[in-house]
Simulated scan of single mutants.
Amino acid sequence: MVYRSNHPTVKAGGRAMMRVMVVDDQKDVRDGLALMLSRDPEIQVVARCANGAEALEALHTLDANGSPLPDVTLMDVRMPVMDGIDATRRIHRLWPDVGIVVLTTYDQDDYAFGALAVGAAGFLLKDASARSIVDAVHAVCAGDAALSPRVTREVIARVIPKPADARNADPFSQLPPRELELASFVAEGLSNAEIAKRMSIEPASVKRSVSRIISRLGLASRVQIAVEWWRAGRHW
């Protein structure tokens, strides 16, 4: 079952709210997440879907109607019909501006980590606090990743192999010094606001630069900057 809202809600002051789609095969989980999110006055839940196929259907419908797409999708990984990894891959390819946060039950679920390689902006445990889930939506909308620096390093070090000849295939060598410095901060897991403070620039400039680095290196997300930093043999 798919629930949609094709009309964006606008806050006082004329600024659009953050639009979120919730995808999980358990109705009580979908409803619980939607309830938690709806308590934030800046968030509007625009769709609730039972699997990846329904999520794609909802996005195709919104797109065909010219309606605003979700800014963020909370995506379960283990679902019937179409799982979260396949859905994440397809959504990222068709609608790269839709940020995806993967939801998992286990903090060592390698299946969930696979979503990072196909474009997810991060992952959360399903038992995360309501504040953590809301904060993740805000972070992804701001262009950040929904992973703490510690989790980023631990996940990448455990899941992503580092080749012995990493230095021979270092994509970051093509970046100018300023972008290289910025990429190092992204790899550390710092937010746009934290990077902006360190580099004495505006957060909006950081967001544009991160997008430029992702495009130049042919990556899927800012999380992949951290992955490639590790693979290249660079240090955090």
Rank of each mutant, 00 (worst) to 15 (best):
S5T: 07
S5P: 00
V10I: 15
A16D: 08
V22A: 05
D24F: 11
D24L: 08
D28N: 13
V29P: 00
A34W: 08
Q44Y: 08
V46W: 05
R48G: 12
C49K: 06
N51L: 13
E54A: 15
E57V: 08
A58V: 09
A58E: 10
A58D: 07
D63L: 04
S67A: 15
P68E: 14
V72S: 02
V72K: 02
V72E: 01
R78A: 10
A87N: 02
R90E: 14
I91P: 01
I91T: 01
H92F: 03
W95L: 06
G99W: 05
G99C: 02
T105D: 12
D109N: 12
L116E: 09
L116H: 09
V118G: 01
G119F: 12
F123R: 04
F123D: 00
L124F: 05
S129N: 00
S129R: 10
V140F: 10
V140Y: 10
A146G: 01
V151T: 07
R153S: 04
P163I: 09
A164D: 13
A169L: 06
D170C: 14
S173P: 00
Q174E: 14
L180H: 15
L182G: 00
G189P: 06
L190E: 07
S191D: 03
A193D: 12
E194C: 03
R208D: 07
S209W: 02
I214R: 14
L219Y: 11
A220T: 13
S221P: 03
R222P: 03
R222F: 00
V223P: 01
V227G: 03
V227C: 11
A232P: 01
